[in-house]
Amino acid sequence: MGDVFKALADETRRAILDELAERDDQTLFEICSRLAMNHGLGSTRQAVSQHLDVLEEAGLIHSERRGRYKFHTLDTSPLAQIAERWHPKDSP
């Protein structure tokens, strides 16, 4: 599995996660429209596709081919290792 920290250390990849948190099963086309319209990010589809590969290697998203289309879905479970490594202090 790729490095979660490296995957998160990029503004465009964090914006992709923000948008995938809105709803599951997005195509590359939808992700690109959201980045352009909601974040003013004019990344090429090829660049976004490469960002998705990094996120998928880190386990932060899953892509699934269904019929002729490929959908992407957020998976926040790798983020648990951050809380396990640095336990959040209990609130008073």
């Binding site: 709803r23 997005q26 195509t27 086309f29 939808e30 429209s33 959201r34 319209m37 909601n38 002729r68 289309y69 959908f71």
Partner: peptide, 17 residues
């Protein structure tokens, strides 16, 4: 549909097969 309605400012789109 591969994209349910998506509202982005003044534009709303959806994508169908």
């Amino acid at each position: 549909f591969t994209q349910a309605p998506l509202v982005q400012g003044p534009v709303t789109t959806a994508v169908l097969d």
